[in-house]
Design a protein around this nucleic acid. Structure first.
Lengths: 239, 239
DNA sequence: CGATACTACTTGTCTATACAAGTATAGATA
DNA sequence: TATCTATACTTGTATAGACAAGTAGTATCG
């Protein structure tokens, strides 16, 4: 093994070359990546080898390929990890509870400066704003305040949410491509204490979440759950 | 589109066939999957097509392939989602803090019944047990109690952890394949209050984590952070 | 002017073949 | 017995060629 040089397969060399061009900025998001035929000629490879390189870059979300058109540099995503948290309704169902929810607020309103910044909106834009309290057999287990970008779910306000939960509706019209979470333990304010019917010193889990859909910030949510009544569960597998 | 039947590519048919055999129980974990040559003959396909099918099944973690030996049904993992949480040291560094840690306990001991159950160990087995307090500029931000399966990191106790953190050492010798998390908001007990130097009513984030490596439970950790001093951040992208 | 057909180019799938490289086993050899 | 060797089989990589299918633009026709 002394002095030996790592040998890379040809398709790996092609991949590295394209990745290098992307990372160096030579190829920018939405730029056209050389076609399979061009790459094959460039690297003295067969088209299949270039195909494999581009195919794997697709799987790694570095490029997007469109049949008949070409391959293009993918738009960067916030990060490349996955956090899966079950919907509250599903979680309650899974431990044998009975889920119900109460919509406290559901309206369109002007964005505040803070929300505009978090959701990449202009200050004159409006958003959909909802506050929902989730219960298990009548006991409040979660306060959920959500701001929804009207561009990704224009019909949100006209849903009646009898047959489908707001979360499931949103997942249908605006599938989550990416999300960012901040989890904290907090003592929540009096208003939320009232909604959740908890004592002032009861520690609560606060989950602030931004989701992206179609390369837009789709939702910004603040989710508060009393520690004594709710445990957040997550699972993961590294790729 | 009326009455049209979905046409599947040949490599997809091969994939589906193998997946069906796995899901139906006809092929069990560690069983040998037919070789590329056999599948090619079976489906009247070329070896390259069978190769593509098995290659994609590898990427989907349904099978494991060993060059020169064959393809085998993968052992099932806890779940198929990914939660990435930065190491505390990295997170502190990222917001410009200065990380230090203090090892309170680091020893081998007999497992308790509870830990044995959580880590799939026998009651006569021993484990490595560590308690570490992480600080930022001398202020405690995290209490971390960890139980390590000696089988995945037999040299853990003989490390001095001057140049490498325990987490990074573990990641090196026992890469995480999967993990399970339970996140709660809690009021922590007096002992931990003392370690973290916090008030009794200070809400804390509790993170209980099991990690798997090489198909074994590698670690079980209880991580406690005061809410006022620590925010857990997670990011995700759906595949 | 608008619809149609043609074309050049792209990615998607598939074949037949080849050689490299890793593993397991049976048999020959020391 | 222990070790080497030939072999059969496996997966990994790569080629050259083929046809299908989708897109965009150009030229042609009515």
């Amino acid at each position: 093994m002394v002095g030996s040089e790592q040998v890379f397969a040809l398709y790996e060399k092609i991949k590295k070359s394209v990745v290098k061009d992307i990372d160096s900025g030579k190829l920018k998001p939405d730029d056209k990546v050389p076609s399979e035929t061009q790459l094959a000629k460039l690297f003295n490879a067969s088209r299949m080898t270039a195909n494999r390189a581009l195919k794997e870059l697709t799987e790694e979300s570095r490029i997007v390929r469109i049949q008949g058109v070409g391959s293009f540099v993918a738009r960067p995503k916030p990060d490349a990890a996955l956090l899966e948290i079950k919907s509250i309704a599903k979680e309650i169902a899974d431990w044998g509870g009975v889920h119900s929810s109460q919509i406290l607020i559901l309206k369109e309103e002007k964005v505040t400066e803070q929300i505009a910044q978090k959701m990449n909106l202009n200050i004159e834009d409006t958003i959909f704003h909802s506050i929902i309290v989730h219960k298990d057999r009548g006991i409040c287990v979660q306060y959920s305040e959500r701001f929804i970008n009207p561009k990704v779910a224009p019909d949100y306000l006209s849903q009646n949410f009898k047959k489908i939960t707001p979360s499931d509706y949103l997942l249908g019209v605006a599938p989550i491509q990416a999300a960012e979470h901040i989890i904290e333990a907090v003592n929540c304010n009096k208003e939320i204490q009232k909604y959740l019917k908890i004592q002032p010193d009861e520690p609560c889990l606060s989950l602030k979440r931004r989701t992206w859909s179609f390369d837009r910030v789709a939702t910004y949510s603040i989710i508060i759950s009393p520690g004594s009544r709710y445990k957040l569960k997550g699972k993961f597998i590294r790729g």
